[in-house]
Amino acid sequence: MGVIRGSKQNEFLPGTLDMLLLRTLMRGPMHGYGIAQFIRQRSDDVLQIGEGSLYPALQRLQVKGYISAEWGLSENKRRARFYRLTRKGEKQLELEVESFDRVMEAIAHVMLPG
């Protein structure tokens, strides 16, 4: 599951980018840069989300009503747009985690030696 940075395509398993974003926002409201940073650090630099994928994905989630956005002040007192998980987004995340677990389990079964 490597990431080609700057690429327009989403190299994650289908739907996993949205799930990662929603999961990250579970921690509380964050701005786009913060989200990217968080995912990169948490995955030990394995998952690097290109801005070309990050922002369109955030817009999509807004249109779907999973997240909402509002302007606020960042840690260094600069104007930044913060995204927040909605109730609907929480439910969606549960669903996605469930089906992700199922897929991982299935893959694990296939990969298991013997």
Partner: peptide, 14 residues
């Protein structure tokens, strides 16, 4: 960052 115009366009397209 890559191509900011493209990122902007894709975001708007959403």
């Amino acid at each position: 960052f890559g191509n900011p115009t493209l990122a902007l366009e894709d975001s708007r397209a959403a």
